[in-house]
Write a protein that binds this DNA or RNA. Structure first.
Lengths: 337, 337
DNA sequence: TTGTAGGCGTTATCAA
DNA sequence: TTGATAACGCCTACAA
């Protein structure tokens, strides 16, 4: 119950030194003599003093804290981005508050609100799948509040976004299937309300066009790209026996589809080749191992947080999109012998 | 830059109503007339008022916030525990601050410190592998500060711990290997400084004893149970060709060992059967699929947070260990034909 | 180098 | 039902 009961005033009284001096000493100000400083630090230790950050943040109007909102922390990609953010933040002396929106718009809105009422200095966010209305960002952005969007950018005008080159990667992925002999390539696509999935879709289309392949609507399956969606997609595929390759907008769906197809006696990649997107750890381990796109996750976290800290400290808003380069990881699922 | 500039005083001036009334209205106090309340809420909305939680927390000396420290958020188990915690917290109106120690003692200590200086009402923690000194908890516990340990308990006396029955699960896992014909069973063990891994070790020993199997020190491999440790263990195993089964204290190590052994031409489970621990998502997907122990992760989060909220609100300290039941998931890696 | 005094934004107490 | 006032713990001009 005594938690944090000791204040600078207790130290002050205890030593007969004014609390302002105590405050200065605890902040290692040069305006306190070495001797007094030592005395104060010793007494603080002895009394079990613990600074009340709330008070100091309130007073200074600076929290040295940033908020991070991701759809789900369990996704390897987001966990890595967070690690990148935390590393930069640690060096810069910032605290990081991690939140997950669970891809719900309501939750996301509430989280933004909570972070702001806790006066974070800035926010890094990968918007949820459920978000189609961006008003909750617009208001703050207009006030110059630092918000940076990563991976899943904000679709309204003038923002600082960090994305990867989904279009190029998707084109490359689809092209890879074509060059490995696929003639009828399906696409597992995410919600087209989301820019990111539109870009992946466009990459797929671009590859087909490049090779003068016809675009067949019935080969394009839009879903939320969860595990169960993969099974659903697989079932649809079985009805279209000419399909011999799949480019999936994420690994999760590709993998669950592959699993299902294997139970139905399909040979992978001989009957159907697969390329995923994300390079989840699981993808290297399944059989056949999944060819996929590796995203520079850790780097993305570092870039995003570095930009945010610049924005916080220089009050300069970039409103510019940074594009990072992904990489095609070729494994067994796409190589027909 | 205007972030949060509007305060209750602005609303107060704007309406000619005292700020104390504004405060009451914003907190939906019954001591404000409906009419005034409406007027205030409307004006707040209009001015874009956003409460300053820091000030409110400072004043009330209550943050309605709990801290959660886990080794790494990317581990599926911890992500699920966190989901359980967040669900309970959401219903109880608490904010949750998620932190990862990355299994570093230094980081953990710092995180505890940061959380306390931010005056969280309580802490839920799964201690890091690097932690062997518990002084940083002792101090606060003695002050009655609510801390609850889950999964990896605190080894010093009198704590509230939530664990699963590792011993029973490990005994069952090892027994399962024995009943499936394994004669020489190895154990991949975690650091014996950690209670949890000692319990898993004991379960392994107990099973051997139950069936009068000799305990062979050279069959027990202690490591930090990371991916690379699995490869190392696999190499050691190859030097001991009599080993025909492995009980691993986690899935990660089991899987990387299996992968390596497969590249070396071993047939799994025919040559060597495997049982892991944790039921990582990957375990269902690899080949052969990994028999493992499923832990009630989400439930553990709910139980731990519920206990914490009780402790916070009733000021009653349980200092009691709650044991949850794990479950053996039998898959292909342990069934020799 | 140290002390004085005032305020960050909110809420609780008391009085009206 | 509303208002005045003080205080939460800290920091920072300014003065000494």
């Amino acid at each position: 119950m005594n938690k944090g009961k000791i204040t600078i005033h207790d130290i002050s009284k205890n030593l007969g030194i004014d609390s302002s001096t105590v405050s200065r000493a605890l902040n290692d100000s040069p305006r306190v003599s070495k001797k007094t400083k030592e005395k104060i630090l010793k007494k603080a230790e002895e009394l079990g003093y613990q600074r009340n950050s709330l008070a100091s943040k309130l007073r200074t109007n600076r929290t040295n804290t940033i908020g991070v909102i991701v759809p789900r922390i369990s996704r390897h990609f987001f966990a890595s981005v967070i690690s990148g953010i935390e590393e930069t933040a640690f060096d810069a002396g910032y605290e990081v508050i991690i939140c997950q929106s669970l891809d719900s718009y309501e939750r996301e809105k509430k989280l933004v609100d909570t972070l702001l009422s806790n006066r974070v200095d800035g926010i890094l966010i990968s918007i949820s799948m459920g978000t189609t209305n961006y008003d909750h960002f617009e208001n703050y952005k207009n006030n110059g509040f630092p918000i940076i969007f990563f991976d899943r950018p904000c679709e309204v005008s003038k923002n600082t976004n960090i994305i990867i080159d989904d279009l190029k990667a998707s084109l490359e992925a689809t092209e890879h299937l074509i060059l490995n002999g696929c003639k009828n390539i399906a696409h597992f696509s995410g919600p087209q309300t989301i820019e990111l999935y539109r870009r992946r879709y466009k990459g797929y289309i671009a590859a087909l066009e490049k090779y003068n392949f016809p675009i067949r609507e019935e080969f394009i399956f839009e879903s939320n790209l969860m595990k169960q969606d993969g099974i659903q997609c697989a079932k649809e595929i079985l009805k279209l026996p000419e399909i011999d390759g799949v480019f999936s907008a994420n690994d999760v769906t590709a993998i669950s589809a592959m699993q299902y197809l294997k139970t139905q006696g399909k040979k992978l990649p001989e009957d159907i080749a697969f390329v995923g997107f994300s390079n989840e750890p699981i993808s290297a381990v399944i059989e056949p191992s999944l060819t996929t796109i590796n995203q520079p996750d850790f780097e993305m976290g570092k870039v995003a947080s570095t930009l945010l800290f610049n924005q916080i400290n220089n009050k300069t808003v970039l409103n510019q999109t940074t594009i990072l380069e992904p990489e095609l990881i070729i494994r067994k699922s796409s190589i027909k012998n």
